[in-house]
């Protein structure tokens, strides 16, 4: 179902939900490199906009309160909990989700490292873990030793407990970067 309130060059990013009410706000942002315009009510959270309106369901909801990290995306290059920010706050922002990591069918080095090190089990926290990894590896203020990595990644809970393999994957990706 198309909604004429949204103008996106990419059919895949057309929202499904046609509902509108009086106080919708128009937001234009860059999502995984593509311009997207959304018209949403103010209380639509970025996470729900991605998942329920733009079919970008790779970003997961685990707690909806910034307490688990499953919803981590990059906002202007930095990791952030997409569950604790409103879609309307991101006019002009550049947002990257897990769907934006691989390029031209080639896995991102972080994705390759997670595959090789079995850095997951159920896979549900994995997008968040990887987005935090990408952000961390680009942030030279964060130390590269294991203790610094574990501290910096502690906002991403893995209930399966695949932490050891995630650490291996992170450090392996760092070495290849």
């Amino acid at each position: 179902m198309m909604d004429d309130s949204v103008h996106s060059p990419d059919d895949a990013l057309q929202p499904r939900d046609a509902s509108r009410s009086s106080n919708t706000v128009t937001v234009s942002l860059t999502l995984n490199g593509e311009p997207v315009t959304l018209e949403v009510e103010p209380n639509v959270v970025l996470l729900d906009a991605l998942r329920e309106r733009l079919d970008l369901t790779g970003t997961k909801k685990g707690c909806d309160h910034g307490q688990c990290g499953a919803c981590t995306v990059l906002i202007d290059g930095h990791s952030a909990n997409s569950c604790l920010t409103l879609a309307v706050m991101h006019e002009g922002c550049e947002i990257t989700t897990v769907e934006g990591l691989a390029r031209d069918g080639q896995l991102h080095p972080v994705q390759e490292a997670f595959l090789e090190h079995d850095a997951y089990q159920c896979g549900y926290c994995t997008a968040g873990q990887m987005m935090s990894t990408v952000s961390m590896l680009n942030d030279k203020r964060i130390g590269s030793d294991d203790a610094s990595v574990k501290e910096a990644m502690s906002g991403n809970i893995c209930r399966c407990g695949a932490y050891k393999n995630i650490l291996s994957a992170v450090q392996s990706a760092r070495a290849k970067a």
Binding site: G66, G69, T72, H78, S79, A80, N81, G155
Partner: peptide, 9 residues
């Protein structure tokens, strides 16, 4: 305090 993601925002 908090987590990297929260501190970033």
């Amino acid at each position: 305090g908090a987590s990297t993601q929260l501190r970033n925002v």
